[in-house]
Design a protein around this nucleic acid. Structure first.
Lengths: 334, 334
DNA sequence: CTGAAAGCGCTTACAG
DNA sequence: CTGAAAGCGCTTACAG
């Protein structure tokens, strides 16, 4: 069943059928009804390939995530997909991994699939080394790019993010205000986002007149096994009294290892996570975390997208403030 | 840049260019080289829409998940996507939610996108009520269907699964062998898969001459808050000495609530999870779980897909055996 | 408000 | 081994 069949059965030209389908141009109500009836009777739906060929769009958006198994990235994909379909778009998903070459390959792959835009679940795509982000600029020359949780200034790139520096500043301050003297910071990858978080960490310390060296930033392995061992080694340093973690999963593991070492939380060491995911409240003790407004960011991302795809202008950057969710891991009085 | 440009620049017809691109038909080495050079010089890649239009395929597979935020489903998507791209396919992702009507809508959506096949991250798509699965049969009339973690007998449907009945049987038996007398089973949705698990639970009990009533199967809310309260209420029943949970996340929450109630694990109540996800080993105490071979299932799913799409025959059903991962939550001697 | 016709960029029998 | 040509199913100026 194609547009010619509909045309024949309803006794109008294919041009008119097309107009009815797309609600474009003028069609008399009478003709419209006639055509609609035939379309519905046959439950006809237009061939997307042919449509794509004439309009050069298939209403498809590429979503890139480094690792969909990461509960936070999965959450982003969930919200993005939800809003995407409200606007008639479908999501094409790519899990790239952390390797830069692989990321480039995936961008090319999606480009060859002629997606209408690209959304990067961002913090993992922004390397610390600025020149490694060239492929993002390149991508934005062909198609609008949305950076979720990351920031890059360039034509055709829109950044939607939460103030991670402030977030970590607040989390660190929370610990310091309760008497912690030697906080350390743990991450598993040295991304831009981690840099921002670390910078918030440093500012909070400076604000409390604590000396801060780079040695208090630990970039550990992202393999659970190895990560566990590195945390174990770190915890031998009994001066540490707070561990600010770049995400909840790290924090949950820290909590486990601390328990294994007989270290009391929060009495001996305070722990904070990030993202306010299930890991934070399923851990024992529950972990203080930071709600970085995932859902808002995702909605905004899709809204930005629709605007840009309609040729409208949209602010280069949207930054949300997040909020601390206090739990047992930083509360000595509970 | 299109096939005509390449044709002109290399001095051959578009038919030949097409043959070179697709490695189809006969092309002399000399001609092939000439064409390839031009293609590479221009870094030309064929228009997927036009290709799709002539071949009626865009090498795209629809993956349906009820909830990508579920760590287990996310894991499946990860492995599926990984294998899919090895075979030149791209993944279109839909998160349907649990509502039956919404599921149907998403199947139609993907059908209208002309995906080459559908993969259902299964257990959540198979309703207990057989007649509610009609839409899956319907889908399989248009396009090959792969059911991951679920079983349905029908032409053009291939089921890949792990023996969940056996899995739950083993987990339950593990507890019973250590002296548990009153195990209960907790799930958050009454799917086919839950039915199988419950049936394994029942068999293990019968095998230990324990009476089993339907009242020992609890189908609770899937909202964490409410679920927590229901678990809390259940734990007031002090006769319960083992809780077999349908997945790790439930188990982790049970563990939290038990701790809150001063119930010792495993001494007073043993707990088992399912899927062997991060939740199981990040919980405290670590939770005994069941490795249901996600990665094997996913690889097999994609292998099956490629076979079927090449018109080859493939076994209707593949069933893997899983394995117990013992941890502290069922080990009184540690 | 409606239709005829060109165009989008491929693939693939068919003929040579 | 290669090319001319039909066909895939839409959209959209253009003319009326």
């Amino acid at each position: 069943m194609n547009i010619y069949d509909i045309s024949k059965q309803s006794g109008v030209s294919i041009a008119t059928v097309s107009r009815v389908i797309n609600n474009s141009g003028y069609v008399s109500d009478k003709t419209r009804k006639k055509v609609m009836d035939v379309i519905e009777k046959n439950s006809y739906s237009p061939n997307v390939f042919a449509k794509g060929m004439s309009t050069a769009s298939m209403k498809t958006i590429g979503i890139l995530t480094t690792n969909i198994r990461d509960i936070y990235q999965a959450q982003c994909v969930y919200y993005l997909e939800q809003d995407l379909k409200k606007h008639g778009y479908t999501a094409m998903l790519c899990c790239t991994g952390d390797d830069l070459e692989a990321k480039k390959k995936h961008v090319e792959l999606l480009a060859s699939r002629k997606v209408d835009a690209l959304i990067f679940i961002g913090s993992h795509f922004l390397e610390k080394n600025a020149k490694d982000n060239g492929y993002l600029y390149a991508a934005s020359n062909h198609v609008p790019v949305i950076l979720l949780n990351g920031r890059l200034q360039h034509k055709n790139i829109i950044s939607i993010l939460c103030d991670d520096e402030k977030g970590t500043y607040d989390l660190t301050t929370l610990c310091l205000n309760q008497g912690c003297q030697t906080p350390h910071f743990i991450a598993t990858r040295d991304t831009m986002s981690v840099q921002h978080k670390f910078s918030g960490f440093v500012k909070a310390c400076e604000n409390h007149n604590l000396e801060i060296h780079k040695e208090k930033l630990h970039v550990f392995s992202d393999q659970p096994q190895e990560l566990g061992e590195q945390i174990h080694a770190l915890l031998q340093d009994k001066t540490i009294d707070a561990l600010i973690c770049a995400d909840d999963e790290i924090a949950a593991l820290v909590s486990r290892v601390a328990e294994y070492n007989g270290i009391k939380i929060p009495e001996q060491v305070m722990i904070t996570g990030y993202n306010n995911s299930s890991f934070s409240f399923l851990a024992s003790p529950a972990i203080t975390s930071f709600d970085n407004r995932t859902q808002y960011m995702c909605s905004q991302a899709i809204f930005a997208l629709t605007q840009v795809l309609e040729g409208k202008e949209f602010p280069e950057e949207t930054m949300y403030s997040g909020k601390i969710i206090e739990r047992e891991s930083t509360n000595k009085n509970e």
